[in-house]
Design a protein around this nucleic acid. Structure first.
Length: 593
RNA sequence: CGGGGAGUAGCGCAGUCUGGUAGCGCACAGCGUUUGGGACGCUGGGGUCGUAGGUUCAAAUCCUAUCUCCCCGACCA
């Protein structure tokens, strides 16, 4: 491709709307163009990288037995009504009516459609396991798209689905995906870590998220450098400290005027925050046996120095959603905001959840449910009992690793992929069954596995760039080589040599971008750096005098002098070495349950 | 949905307070000089100032409404 003909435009200045680096660089490199919040055009440079990434998806999916299909992105509502998600999902799902007044949706994921497909074509255990995947557009009307391609409304996703006869089947398939996903990300030149993640309302048995560590991440991860434990903070656990051993002392009310935070309380009474209990109040939507939803006041107690993890609480009480309770709602159950404790409240109106550490800790200071007063020496069991005693604490920096006890750290990450044991929720809903050896009808056990292409592309840039621009790993670069001609009117021999080298590279099958523009050298070099092509070749009068083409690696600045006669082979060798460098990172990874 | 910010040429911005018929840099087109890390000169094209009402002799500028985009939070199959 000649740069003079390339459909793009580099920008010297950063568009004001772009905050994160990947967004800025993609705009400046002329890769993408936004037409509405979270909706983008992909221009040729981005499109080529997208194709390369997607071909890596195809190779890795095919390697573990996948077959590619394409399912529609417009779905009839019935399929979503069958699974119930038509009713559960809010305005993230775009709904509309076709000309016959039939309810339709834009596909935001394809479990329903896949299960429906399985229902039509899978009959027998002999057909299982089966794996289908597609690379398709999804539309999710996100409330807040952000950060360029990191969080968008319309995006391309590689989504794969497995169909197994039982849990043992998917238990065998799941680790193949685990490895294939590591392979994909490493072939894209990025380091990821798989973390255990929330299965939430999907009700699956196991899920992992593949996280790329970067500041712009939306998720917080808990990592143990000592033993490798890793989990999304939403589900991370830790080794709770042993509470002090002490005889329960008598309950004692103490005046604490104006002291309504744990910090102030600890200071006022000159005790550590760990000697206090804190109350947090929510209203939960609980699903009733008959399918209706009821609002329930949830009173939750954690130790004063610890933070509540709302995801853990949501899962522990199987809530559909949680919201903070208002002051009026808190008073209505007999508690006082800022001075709450489970002692003396209207117990019949609340679901009381107490963290296991609080339940084991003697003589904690807690609120007296009266403004300006606290209670010393509250003891679980003696003074109150809970509906549920369970871990609901969020892991923070320095907490003890659940596996080895070392101090964990937290880090920000972007989820670039996830794998999920779905179970039979969708197959049962859609009626996807098979007959086993005994002629017995059984629901198919499903798994789903997704990677968003655009987000991955953005994350690659987040992890591979410098002040000058993108540094594409060669496996996903739009072109492997950029050939810069420094010819002027006075040096037609340079133009001739560049044209010849371009033709020779093309003939040799090298993916080459040829900067034949009538621009100054600086403009070409800067544009080459910006768009991030891994190998730069310069044909100039200087080099030709010595019979060489100059080469330079974008990722580290290493330079080469290729003799004109062998330049094509030399470049091919360099490309091969660069590819091998990345492929060398693709190694087996132990499956971390 | 709550909080904050911004809409003037493809991009970056000034002009708005104090109303007087739209400007700068980059980019783009032409000509000339230049030519190894974002050249210079001259000439030129491009904007219903987000949109709709209103005030006024006159609105980018004042008033009202509305739409859009960005950031933080809530939300996130």
């Amino acid at each position: 491709m000649r740069v003079s003909r390339l459909f793009f435009q580099t920008l010297r200045e950063t568009p004001a709307d772009a905050e994160v680096v990947s967004h800025q660089l993609m705009l400046r490199a002329g890769m993408i163009h936004q037409i509405a919040a979270g909706i983008f055009d992909y221009l040729p440079l981005a499109q080529r990288t997208k194709h390369k990434i997607e071909n890596i998806f195809r190779e890795e999916m095919d390697a573990i037995g996948g077959q590619e299909v394409t399912l529609p992105m417009v779905h009839p509502a019935e399929l979503w009504q069958k699974s119930g998600r038509w009713y559960q999902i809010g305005s993230d799902m775009v709904r509309f009516k076709d000309r016959n007044d039939r309810d339709m949706v834009l596909g935001m994921t394809h479990e329903e459609i896949m299960a429906d497909l399985a229902k039509r074509f899978i009959r027998s255990y002999r057909q299982l396991p089966m794996m289908l995947y597609q690379i398709q557009t999804k539309f999710r009307d996100e409330p807040r798209p952000r950060a360029g391609l990191i969080r968008v409304r319309e995006f391309t996703m590689k989504d794969a689905y497995t169909f197994d006869r039982d849990e043992a089947g998917i238990d065998a398939y799941y680790p193949k995906f685990y490895q294939a996903y590591y392979n994909i990300f490493r072939r894209c030149g990025i380091d990821v870590i798989a973390v255990k993640s929330d299965t939430g309302m999907m009700g699956g048995r196991m899920a992992h998220e593949f996280m790329a560590l970067t500041e712009i991440g939306e998720d917080t991860l808990v990592l143990c450098d000592a033993c490798g434990y890793s989990a999304n903070r939403q589900v991370a656990v830790f080794r709770k400290p042993e509470p002090p051993v002490a005889e329960p002392l008598p309950l004692e009310e103490v005046a604490t005027p104006g002291v309504s935070t744990i910090e102030a309380l600890a200071q006022f009474l000159n005790i550590p925050a760990s000697a206090t209990a804190k109350a947090v109040f929510f209203i939960a939507d609980l699903e009733q046996p008959d399918g209706s939803v009821k609002e329930q006041f949830v009173f939750c107690v954690v130790r004063g120095d610890m933070e509540l993890n709302e995801t853990k609480l949501t899962n522990a009480i199987k809530a559909r959603r949680l919201r903070p309770a208002t002051a009026a709602e808190i008073r209505a159950i007999g508690a006082e905001p800022g001075y709450g404790s489970p002692i003396g409240i209207r117990r019949d109106r609340v679901l009381l959840v107490v963290d296991d550490l609080v339940a084991r800790s003697p003589n904690l200071v807690a609120g007296a449910n009266r403004e300006g007063y606290h209670l010393r020496n509250t003891n679980y069991g003696r003074d109150y009992t809970a509906d549920l005693v369970v871990d609901v604490v969020a892991v923070s920096d320095g907490y003890a690793c659940p596996q080895c006890g070392a101090a964990v750290r937290t880090a920000r990450g972007v989820e670039v992929g996830n794998i999920f044991k779905l179970g039979t929720k969708y197959s049962v809903a859609m009626g996807a069954t098979y007959l086993d050896e005994n002629g017995e009808e059984k629901p198919i056990v499903m798994g789903s596995y997704g990677i968003g292409t655009g987000r991955l592309m953005a994350v690659i840039i987040e992890l591979h760039h410098d002040e000058a621009g993108i540094q594409w790993p060669i496996t996903v670069a739009p072109y492997q080589v950029i050939l810069i001609s420094l010819a002027t009117e006075k040096t037609p021999e340079v133009a001739e040599a560049a044209e010849k080298l371009y033709a020779d590279l093309l003939a040799a099958g090298v993916e080459v971008l040829y900067d034949d523009r009538d621009e100054r050298a600086g403009v070409k070099f800067n544009d080459a750096d910006l768009i991030g092509i891994p190998i730069r070749l310069t044909v100039g009068a200087k080099g030709l005098q010595n019979g060489v083409i100059e080469g330079k690696l974008r990722r580290n600045g290493e330079t080469f002098a290729f003799p004109v006669e062998t330049a094509v082979q030399d470049v091919q060798a360099l490309i091969a070495a660069e590819i091998e460098r990345i492929h060398a990172t693709v190694v087996p990874v132990p499956f971390d349950e």
